[in-house]
Design a protein around this nucleic acid. Sequence first.
DNA 1: TACCTTATGCTCATTGTTAGCATATCATTG
DNA 2: CAATGATATGCTAACAATGAGCATAAGGTA
Lengths: 300, 300
Amino acid sequence: MTESAITADLVAVLVAVSNGQPLVMTLEDGAALPAGPFEPGHRSLQAGLRAWVERQTHHPVGYVEQLYTFADRDRTKVGARTISISYLGLTRLLGGGGDAGWRGWYEYFPWEDHRAEKPPVLRLTAAYLTAWVAAGSTITVRRQRRERVDVNFGLGCTWTDELVLQRYELLWEAGLVPESPHRHESGVALIPGTPMMHDHRRILATGISRLRAKIKYRPVVFELMPERFTLLKLQQCAEAVAGQLTHKQNFRRLIEQQQLVEETGEFATETGGRPAKLFRFRAEVRRERAFAGTKLARAP
Amino acid sequence: MTESAITADLVAVLVAVSNGQPLVMTLEDGAALPAGPFEPGHRSLQAGLRAWVERQTHHPVGYVEQLYTFADRDRTKVGARTISISYLGLTRLLGGGGDAGWRGWYEYFPWEDHRAEKPPVLRLTAAYLTAWVAAGSTITVRRQRRERVDVNFGLGCTWTDELVLQRYELLWEAGLVPESPHRHESGVALIPGTPMMHDHRRILATGISRLRAKIKYRPVVFELMPERFTLLKLQQCAEAVAGQLTHKQNFRRLIEQQQLVEETGEFATETGGRPAKLFRFRAEVRRERAFAGTKLARAP
DNA sequence: TACCTTATGCTCATTGTTAGCATATCATTG
DNA sequence: CAATGATATGCTAACAATGAGCATAAGGTA
């Protein structure tokens, strides 16, 4: 065998938001992301991914963006090497989400949902991570570990929502997730959170990180929203993605001053209180220009 | 042939800054980026890239980051499909840059250097792009083209330095660069700027875009700087990358309040005026944490 | 010594963010 | 029908970040 035997896989992180919950499309009873081989017939990687996802999930995908390409050795099958090219896709949920494949993404990352109060998992996580810090061989290693833990999990400073991938990788290194090969090192129990096959949970973390970052400087929320919506719905969608609550009045002000949306003139009455104006995204925004994104205003 | 015949290439955008000029490592007399096949022996893509670049350029690479994976059809050789995985690498220039491969990156993108005054190419570019806008078939197409041109080239609004890739793609679509297959459409002359083989100039644009964006929120400048330096040198490095001048006093204030650097106690006297303090990057920053990057302060 | 050059410190106006108060408008209930 | 509870929406004070300019310091050279 002189030539390298290489195959290419496409993996999709397909995201939707329904009822204030962020969802991801899965297969294998929630243990895998949609994936399939890249076929030479496809016009491009992006086209290949679109075709594959739509065939597999019967969902039209609105926005698609490349995430990362993996080819680490533990992905090797015998005699062949697989390159996985992962994508983030955003979509609206059409028919009430009858599909069985949709899972709330906080099942996989319970420590990432800060909308209610600090998730209880975090206390446990902090304790285990502190043990991992203390288990470092030299003082330098311990200091570096301490710093990483503090920054990523917001112990000294503030919680940064985009660090999903870094946090997952930290837990992986510390042997606190079942996917980790370092489990023997610490021998401690596991952090709650559903695992996935191969490195799919890492890919999902990459997708969430990217989306949380992107939503702040590009108008991609609207890919997740229906045609018409109230500002509260929009806010809840942004909060679902960010995993953090926001100050209502400031959120509204930001949205308005960015000229992201326009009134339809209609009202939504099913809210229980004063009827809310219905909005739609402005046409210029839908055409994905270099507009500002959905900035979040921290909750009080 | 049932199985897909796929090969994987690694392409590097290797960047350094010397004398206030941003440089990129090239081959083929400036017409290509360093590239080579990904071999199954490599531990990972990143390791493969590192090995390849260091063997080919005899340069140690400090920081490496994946850019994008391409597999468009026009990359096809007969019977095989090549996937190109591109990387951004940052390095310090050691021995005065005797290597012939280093090229100033503004040779390839003369419209991106706004440090002196508006580059003269821009007048030409704007004129050609306006013609392209007018050549749109329908009024909708023309309006969309106008909006894209305005936003990307800062005609109505302000110039945004990170849009290097989008600007190049616009010129490509408009048939204004020699690499473009749309040249017949407009039949106009070409915009100055050295072309490259295949889609290497697009990959370079991707790298510059990424670096210009990254430098603002991650401390990566120091990968391009020598051990000790004056604040002016640091500023000039940042300006070289951004292609824009910055307000000196405000730059200093930002750097200091971010605690990016610390004084060494020494002074540089070769400046011509009052001797400048020499600084070095703080150890915490060198260990690449989630620190803030080098924010730029717009010039007056 | 006068003058040029670069370094460095400080101020001020403007803008953007955070947080909270106040009011409007619906439904429901006593 | 008035009181109550819910949500929507408007407004403002306090504070932080940014952009721009003035002033001074400390070296060199004519």
